[in-house]
Design a protein around this nucleic acid. Structure first.
Lengths: 333, 333
DNA sequence: CTGAAAGCGCTAACAG
DNA sequence: CTGTTAGCGCTTTCAG
């Protein structure tokens, strides 16, 4: 049997309340008593039971983090940002993978709520109605990280994806391209349909260029699929040779697909990538890219969550972080 | 106030014990009663409080996972394996980053134990005495994943790193190399000093080749450091042109450093990489490499942990998984 | 098949 | 500055 607060109290000849005060840093304890208690704690190897504490105090100092897939570097970098700030504020993290399946997302939220997390960080390319409904039943704050809420209701931390896409496309247009392939993740996902694609179209229209449906290529978000689909781009009529990808996995997949089949970047194709996670950082040629501050997205989201959990007044719950376009070698100079 | 088991009991005109039985799938409940209770649960939106349950049952169905840095793909892929099996057995995961700092590792183990995790998965390149001592105070099973215990005491899941290093070096020797650079992570870490380096030396000696200290290059484990240190290899007397790296970050860092400075792989340098995580998978030329089954390492470790937590008899607590050497394009054919 | 009752280990008033 | 006393919401005997 593990040693409890009672054992310490008995050993130190004080009440459990006093031990509790010492453990929780309450100042109303005479230094001598404090020392005596601390000694007993040390001697007995007492370790406070966070579960009992959680039950009594109704706070678990634990936050739930739901992520599509932690093995994808975009999410693992975000998660690291979340984790560091969580540590700073002494929260633990319960991490779960949803694979972006709505059913699973709902299950996980339910599950985390059952564990009595004090707050939650949620990541996905889209918020379904079911998820939205589930979140509404929660009595704890939930912050979206790198996740778009088209209804602009939920607290969130993002960059302006539409503007970023617009800027990427414009970059290509400015360097002379008139036909730009938009290699995107599923349009069933808000972030692609309602944001990045909108930016793509806006840039085109603003330049007086036609929106050609055949240049819009919908893929899933996997590297492998993008890799295998290089030829869909290569076989496009009129051979458009500029590509903007909605994320790293797609950009790098296409880049490698093209190169492994004898085509060159940027000579044959110019590519702009989105995100620039560690995965994209190591490929060559280095990718001209929208650099999303992944770590910061996670860190700021967690910081926002701490404020919400503490009941602090937050002036703006929809945080937009800056991004930048970095020119490297996947476009001609 | 959230709805409790009492509310459901009152609503259904049964005792809380009966509600508990229904919730926990105990068969000793008359179908009619069960249905009545289930209806009330549904109607009231009752959600069992896992914290209270944990306190009463002394099981939290939560396991702690301590990882050096989740944003490193090696670890995030291992973590995904752990998470999937955890989900399968209905465990949640508390994930924490240690940055491989002993002090932090000890703190985290203490912290997770306080949270009453039912078991733990631990990852690091070395197990310090402090960590070992801390683990000894735990009354729960702890399994090492991708983490070497030189004392062979703790339950663990690994590949045979020494044999893998031996095989990598032998591969280079067999293709004619006599001077092979060993680009390694810190030798303060067991996995490098007591295992991979041992394999390197064994291969050399077996081939009657001298062990040249100057060819053994100690780096930290970061991509950036390796990238910046390409010249240490390029400037080596006699220009050895075969390299074996102890992990992906080092291999890819050196590869890119070399290439960005006008050298070619495999023409100027032949490289064998270790791990082959997603990060290594996307670089070109594709790396001839020791392929470590990352996901499986995590999955098997978690499976082992479930057995240990269930008190099942385990025939072998030191699991060694197979690895393979895959030939690709960072060596001449 | 069901209910009563005793905790699990700790926090948080409330007294003193 | 310290002790007493209720719970927190649930599991788990033990009876019946």
């Amino acid at each position: 049997m593990a040693v409890t607060i009672y054992d310490v109290a008995r050993e130190a000849n004080v009440s459990m309340a006093t031990v509790s005060r010492v453990v929780n840093g309450n100042q109303n304890v005479k230094p001598a008593t404090r020392k005596k208690v601390l000694d007993c704690i040390e001697r007995l190897g007492y370790r406070p039971n966070a579960v009992a504490r959680g039950l009594a105090s109704k706070k678990t100092t634990t936050v739930g983090v739901i992520v599509p897939d932690i093995s994808i570097s975009f999410y693992s970098e975000l998660a690291r940002g979340v984790a560091d700030i969580a540590t700073m504020y002494e929260y633990n993290i319960i991490l779960s993978n949803s694979d972006e399946r709505t059913v699973r997302e709902v299950e996980l939220i339910e599950d985390h709520l059952g564990k009595q997390v004090d707050g939650m960080i949620f990541m996905s390319d889209s918020i379904s109605d079911e998820v939205r409904k589930e979140m509404a039943t929660a009595n704890i704050p939930i912050v979206l990280a790198g996740t778009l809420d088209v209804e602009k209701q939920l607290p969130s931390v993002n960059i302006d994806y539409e503007e970023a896409a617009y800027m990427a496309v414009k970059k290509l247009i400015d360097s002379g391209h008139k036909r730009i392939v938009f290699a995107s993740g599923p349009f069933t996902r808000d972030i692609n349909r309602a944001s990045k694609k909108v930016g793509y179209i806006r840039a085109l229209e603003e330049a007086g260029l036609p929106v050609e449906e055949e240049l819009i290529i919908e893929l899933d978000n996997s590297y492998d699929t993008a890799y295998q689909n290089w030829h869909r781009i290569a076989e496009l009529p009129g051979k458009p040779n500029a590509i903007v990808a909605t994320n790293d996995r797609i950009a790098v997949g296409i880049l490698n697909g093209l190169r492994d089949n004898g085509l060159s970047v940027p000579e044959d194709y110019e590519i702009i990538c989105f995100e620039h996670s560690n995965m994209a950082r190591v490929v060559r040629p280095q990718l001209t890219s929208i650099v999303v501050p992944l770590y910061d997205l996670g860190a700021v989201a967690m910081r926002l969550l701490t404020k919400l959990m503490d009941g602090e007044e937050v002036s703006e719950e929809q945080v937009i972080l800056p991004f930048r376009l970095e020119e490297r070698d996947s476009m001609k100079k």
